[in-house]
Design a protein around this nucleic acid. Structure first.
Lengths: 117, 117
DNA sequence: CCGCATCCCTTTGGATACTG
DNA sequence: CAGTATCCAAAGGGATGCGG
């Protein structure tokens, strides 16, 4: 294994590139799941409930929405909180600081896409 | 079609969100193709030939590398140029300004991933 | 009202083999 | 050296139907 690396033209620099880029790749793979960033953005804009999100994205199915909301919470991009004194109990999603910072980068990406050249 | 939108709870704001985000979604889908950003980054760091890229990423197959290089050129992120007076003819890839700006955003994404919270 | 389990189908990455 | 063509396996998203 290590001898293979020695034999090839790989050097410490390239290994570093590989290692670092793989992290980015995981991030990219994660955030590029369909609807994910739209949902995160919507939550940041006060569309914070399951039913409201459904209405905002008519072509988004329930189970994909649920999946995305779970993922977003698991990754620390949103917080899921329920208001116990209401009936029926309301569940709302809010964006964490980490999610906020991600949205700023996504915005840059959006602006980058606007430029033609 | 337009009557559907009228009947639903969609408003101008949500439509705008939807439209804008979809562009981002396409961008995300495009740049999150496996190896793509690693390849772009490597090219920016003087790893500019097919064979060198192959060596830099041993687990990357020929036809995926070729595919990514084609995509990168088609999207205006790299320029493919051949040096005609050499034998065998060398083909090198260079990053365009557009590609460069994208890499800056990717770097931010990388830094974002480094932060835990 | 807020989701999850299951099944299916499309997309995408990868292996093998072949060309200018 | 620099790719391309074809085929195949895995993963992701969507539809249907069911539970808390």
């Amino acid at each position: 294994m290590s001898s293979d690396i020695k034999e090839s033209s790989m050097n410490a620099y390239n290994l570093k590139v590989l290692a670092e880029s793989c992290q980015v790749n995981e991030i990219l793979k994660s955030i590029s799941s369909r609807w994910k960033m739209q949902i995160l953005y919507s939550i940041s804009k006060e569309v914070q409930q399951f039913s409201l999100l459904k209405k905002a994205f008519p072509s988004l199915s329930d189970q994909v929405l649920g999946k995305r909301l779970t993922e977003l919470s698991d990754e620390g991009l949103t917080i899921k909180s329920s208001i116990p004194d209401t009936m029926p109990p309301q569940i709302i999603y809010t964006v964490t600081p980490k999610g906020s910072r991600l949205l700023e980068i996504i915005l840059e990406l959006h602006l980058w896409g606007q430029q033609e050249k």
